[in-house]
Simulated assay, not measured.
Amino acid sequence: MTIDYSSLRQLDLNLLLAFDILVQEASVTQAAEKLNMSQSAMSHALKRLRAVLKDPILIRTSQRQMEVTPYALEISPQVRQILAEIQETLLAKDVFNPATAQEDFRIATNDYVEATLSANLLQQLTQQAPGIQIRVKGLNKDAVLAALDDNSIDLFIGAGLDLKRWHVQESLYQEEFVCVLQSDCPLTELSLEQYVERTHILVSFQDDFRGIGDLILEQQQQSRQVVWSTPHFMVVPFLLANSDCVALLPKRMAERCAKEMGLKLLPPPIDVTRFTVSMIWHQRHNNRPQHQWLRKQFLIAAKQLAD
């Protein structure tokens, strides 16, 4: 359908509302009261409608009564339908019921965040929303923003992205690093000298052997030997359990693995900055009820980490 924008500019939504009420009430005074307008404003709207439609719309039949014209009665159902569709399209909010919803959410994150949040989140989902499916994608950070922009993912959960103005971010929790070693290591604390003497396992998403620890050590004219680099956090505890290596790992993950695998946790001898794990999404999803519900579930799961 071709839209004649120049003709449509003669109309505005207020004129359609006035037309609908005038036809219903067959009275300028009563129509004005119903729309909470002055009688003069309603008379002006009627004058404009008559000019646009080239029809009187209301004609006087006596000193006190008016009658709707045949043409106005003929088009009235279509005008009312147009108003109903505008209301349904622009004003009616989608009702999202997690108990009955069928949704497939695509989330980009790493295995550390997934392991940290997923236990609480999975329990919430199975209890509240049995029809919801979560698809976790492992994406390089360089590809995340493009994936948000082209709508191939709904949400990114992680840290350290340089956002554009159309991306939205909300913090979930703060995290810090600890040194993780074999449980039979006799040390009760780790000096800088002992730290650099050991071989290291590194979690790297850049396919290299340099991490934040190396940058800090360089500032102190120190270096370490990284013998194993992996993009997977969760494999590191298994590697540590059978080696004399040390690794910097997020504390929440390390604490859980230490209990299960008998690993030892020690404070780092270098000043490793805390980091914040956040949710990041495209602004197109700000007001979508299902997306708002999903973000709330992650906030609840993150709060339970501190409880």
Rank of each mutant, 00 (worst) to 15 (best):
C245A: 15
E218H: 15
Q222Y: 10
D94S: 11
L11Y: 00
P77T: 09
W281A: 06
S191Y: 07
R48W: 00
R64Y: 14
V203H: 02
F19L: 01
Q123V: 10
A84F: 06
L266N: 05
V113F: 09
E25Q: 14
A146T: 14
L15T: 03
L161K: 06
M66T: 15
E189H: 14
L161P: 03
Q290N: 12
A108H: 08
A247F: 04
R224A: 13
E175N: 02
V136R: 11
S38D: 11
V68T: 13
W281G: 03
Q133S: 11
S43R: 12
E197S: 10
V113T: 11
K296H: 10
Q290P: 01
S171F: 02
W166L: 06
S43H: 12
E85M: 14
A26P: 07
Q225W: 08
D94P: 07
S191D: 08
S171L: 04
L249H: 04
E25P: 00
Q219E: 15
E25I: 03
L139G: 08
I280W: 00
Q78D: 15
R274P: 10
L22D: 01
V136G: 00
L240T: 09
P56A: 06
I3Y: 06
K296P: 01
H167E: 08
E103V: 14
A129W: 01
H44M: 13
Q65H: 15
A247Y: 07
V79T: 07
T126V: 15
D214Q: 15
F298D: 05
L239K: 12
Q78A: 15
R106C: 09
L265P: 05
S6Y: 04
L263W: 01
L122Y: 10
T69L: 07
Q124C: 04
E33W: 13
S76K: 05
A119M: 07
R252A: 04
D271E: 09
E175F: 02
Q221D: 15
